[in-house]
């Protein structure tokens, strides 16, 4: 197990390196540059700015310098749009916010989605199943950009203590977390049901049932382990996605998280900031997927031998 983890870690470092390299060259393919303003800059000023940030050098030199900055000084570079602010500073402020929202959202998703999926599978093709899956499909079809304003307009205005938007009081995280959570809960419910249906139909469950195994024991002890496989595979990347923020939810609820930075850095060509955010996301994806594989192996011993 330890060897496996170590190997995954090594691969992870490689993934990050490739990711950073690809991102580095891709973003420079985008039209425009970070200094384009609403008004055209005189050419000599554009040249001065490019020179100041080393963007006038060849891409390869820039690439080498970027890695030198990270490896030698732990410097992820400056923001090219919010000049005078370091990329690390921006991420340090936004990440905790997104982390909080992501963890809350995931908690809601898991607590709602997985039990719902299990119940639906247990009562497969009976009315609770239909009802739950109808709700889940609604959750999947209703995008965040509809759900978020609806929550703002209803819960935000009607429920005391909740506010329509803003990041200034104790309960400001509730609505954005709920939005993120419910959308993911719907996915989890569908996936859990799918996995559980598969397992509940398999021979070993029939055997257990024939032996007079109690329903909860059947569900939790025998079926859950392999029934959760699809849901867990989904959870990893979804969790990484959640804690790197969601643009829609953040702009709808005025949350100072990572998602807004992600979109802004792209549309303003803030090369270094985007690079830093992708790095952050990449590390999370690698960790989440590694964690998922470990959990999967724990859930299903067969995978251990297969690896």
């Amino acid at each position: 197990m330890a060897g496996l983890l170590l190997r995954r870690l090594g691969q992870g470092v490689l993934v990050i390196a490739v990711l950073q390299t690809l991102t580095f060259f891709l973003v420079r393919q985008l039209p425009g540059n970070p200094f384009l303003g609403e008004r055209k800059l005189p050419e000599h000023i554009m040249a001065q700015l490019n020179a100041l940030y080393g963007l006038d050098q060849s891409v390869w030199v820039q690439y080498a310098n970027y890695w030198k900055g990270i490896l030698l000084h732990g410097d992820f570079g400056p923001s090219l749009v919010q000049e005078g602010v370091q990329v690390s500073e921006i991420i340090a402020q936004a990440f905790p916010v997104s982390l909080l929202l992501g963890v809350l959202g995931m908690l809601i998703a898991v607590l709602v989605g997985i039990p719902a999926g299990m119940l639906a599978a247990w009562w497969r093709n009976r009315w609770p199943d239909a009802l739950l899956m109808l709700a889940a499909m609604a959750g999947i079809c209703i995008p965040a950009f509809v759900l978020a304003p609806v929550f703002g307009l209803t819960l935000g205005q009607w429920v005391p203590g909740l506010s329509v938007a803003g990041w200034d009081d104790a309960l400001c995280a509730v609505l954005p977390a709920l939005t993120l959570g419910l959308v993911n809960a719907a996915y989890l419910a569908r996936l859990t049901r799918g996995g559980m249906v598969e397992v509940l139909g398999s021979d070993f469950i029939r055997t257990a049932r024939a032996k007079g195994c109690s329903a909860p024991r059947l569900l939790f002890v025998h079926a859950l382990r392999s029934g959760l496989l699809p849901a867990v595979s989904y959870l990893g990347p979804a969790f990484a996605g959640l804690i790197t923020g969601s643009f829609v939810v953040e702009t709808c609820f005025q949350v100072p998280g990572m998602g807004l930075h992600f979109v802004n850095a792209t549309t303003t060509r803030d090369y270094f900031l985007l690079q830093g955010l992708v790095l952050c996301y990449g590390v999370l994806i690698v960790l989440a997927n590694a964690a998922v594989d470990v959990v999967l192996m724990w859930l299903n011993p067969r995978l251990r031998t297969a690896q």
């Binding site: 993934v15 991102t23 891709l26 973003v27 985008l30 992600f262 792209t266 992708v278 994806i285």
Partner: peptide, 16 residues
Amino acid sequence: MMRTVDVLFALPFIVL
């Protein structure tokens, strides 16, 4: 193959 998926997953979608 799976690490390739990881890389593609983490690439910023809009940029791509």
